[in-house]
Design a protein around this nucleic acid. Structure first.
Length: 424
RNA sequence: GGAGGGGUGGCUGAGUGGCCGAAAGCACUGGUCUUGAAAACCAGCGAGUCGAGAGGCUCCCAGGGUUCGAAUCCCUGCCCCUCCGCCA
């Protein structure tokens, strides 16, 4: 959520900045509601004030043993007026919240203009693209050996966009997770955390998957309410600091978690239907940082480098891009995507996304720290980044390290996690 | 599933209808003392919101209700703890 004070004091400027993100902010509607809100709020509060003072005087008169019947009749119709004012105020606030919760974060000034992913700007490349003296296969063909990557069984068990992995491929998939976690823990200073794979509405509101993106989520009815399968561990991990005031000495908080992620992919029918690229269920190792505001931009650079380090270890060529305004996510002020080279598709594909949300999520979550200089609680900054999407990493390893006979060279860094096997 | 006990400020915890935004302690901040520190002593210290300010309003898990007035009484829900049963 954006700071309502900033929106109130300068709605046109906010609207102008949001144009970059292809969002039309309803300035006129907002301002007219604000005028009403202010008027009704002032009226409500003065009525409350009146009621409070009168109630106090009744209490005093009663204590003094005086007759209070006339005082009671004076206060009679105050209650109804107050009820009406309160109801009117609540109604206006609901409308204002609807607007405010639907406004995306402001893009950072570095963020390039642009409509879509075609306008994203490349920052750097790493690695040399592999060359093959044979026709490289894609991961679906490579995984088909011994039914190690089995989409048909998954379709039988559940439906489309799921997979069954078996044998060495399943082991490599698991090995990748271990490598990622160990690297983030031992080399990058993250704290491992295990979290629920289902969350409540409040958590999803906090990180801003709700109320706007409900159709992307799997909902699980539970008694009178609903739980939701997490679309990313960003949700449970970031919400650790919801409604908390974090001691300054504990900052920065750096968490890494391995979880499955569940996405309905409602808006992606027909897209990436082949293979492992876009599934309803996939594994991801996530990095979350909760930092002082002054540290968040440096943290974004570091987190991106942490994700890149995994690709370097796996000897996978990649490039880093800055998302343009039109491609930027709802909560993000700036996002670096890392795209890995996939020989089977002959192009770079997203494998990580690292974002700084500034205080956007923190404001929704009331996630604060106590600033020792001011002595006051202030909003934190939150960042999240994939380090990395495991399924897509598996795809990249298979395709980049394949041999003519369809076998795969296991990257040296992964071999200890696979019992020393060098080729699968 | 059954029985009982709870949810109060950063933390612990008192508070059963008005004198309570809320005792006390811890933590924190400032001061006295000290070469310095610790200890001791003194003082300050919840959050949000409206307002130029004075000050107002809201918040004692959440949502309803009773009342002129609710942290306090009633109802519903959520969560935590103890015991019993069941169980991976």
């Amino acid at each position: 959520m954006l700071d309502p004070k900033i929106i109130r004091s300068n709605p046109e400027q906010v609207a102008a900045q949001l144009v970059k993100k292809k969002y039309v902010f309803p300035v006129a509607e907002f301002e007219s509601l604000e005028v009403q809100r202010r008027e009704v709020q002032v009226r409500t509060e003065s009525l409350q004030s009146e009621r409070n003072t009168r109630s106090k005087s009744i209490g005093k008169a009663k204590a003094a043993g005086e007759d209070i019947t006339s005082l009671l009749s004076d206060v009679n119709d105050l209650g109804t007026q107050l009820e009406e004012a309160k109801a009117a105020l609540a109604k206006i606030n609901v409308q204002l919240d609807d607007i405010l919760l639907g406004v995306p974060n402001l893009p950072h000034e570095d963020v390039p203009e642009g409509e879509s992913e075609d306008d994203n700007v490349e920052v750097r490349r790493w690695g040399t693209l592999p060359t093959f003296d044979f026709d490289p296969q894609d991961h679906v063909a490579l995984g088909n050996r011994d039914s190690a990557m089995d989409f048909e069984s998954a379709a039988k068990l559940t439906g489309s966009r799921f997979v069954v992995l078996q044998g060495k491929i399943a082991r490599m998939h698991r090995a990748l997770i271990q490598l990622m976690l160990d690297t983030h823990i031992n080399e990058h200073g993250y704290n491992e955390i295990y979290v629920p794979y289902m969350v409540n509405r409040d958590s999803l509101m906090g990180t801003s998957q709700l109320p706007k993106f409900e159709e992307d989520l799997f909902k699980v009815p539970f008694g009178e309410r609903d739980y939701y399968l997490i679309p990313t561990s960003e949700v449970p991990v970031t919400n650790m600091v919801r409604d908390e005031i974090v001691e300054e000495s504990r900052l920065p908080l750096k968490f890494t978690a391995h979880t499955p992620c569940f996405r309905s992919e409602a808006g992606a029918s027909g897209k990436d239907t082949r293979g492992l690229i876009r599934q309803h269920q996939f594994e991801k190792v996530e990095m979350i940082q909760v930092v002082k505001p002054e540290d968040s931009w440096q943290a974004l650079e570091n987190m991106t480098a942490n994700a890149e380090n995994i690709l370097k270890k796996l000897e996978l060529p990649y490039r880093v891009i800055t998302l343009c305004g039109g491609d930027l996510g709802f909560a993000a002020a700036k996002t670096y995507d890392i795209e890995v080279w996939l020989p089977g598709q002959d192009k770079y594909r997203e494998i990580s996304s690292c974002s700084n949300t500034l205080d956007f999520q923190a404001r929704r979550m009331k996630a604060r720290w106590r600033n020792s200089e001011t002595g006051k609680p202030e909003l934190l900054h939150t960042l999240n980044g994939s380090g990395l999407a495991v399924g897509r990493t598996l795809v990249a390893v298979l395709e980049n390290h394949q041999n003519a006979d369809g076998t795969i060279n296991v990257p040296a860094v992964l071999q200890p996690y696979m019992g020393g096997v060098t080729v699968i």
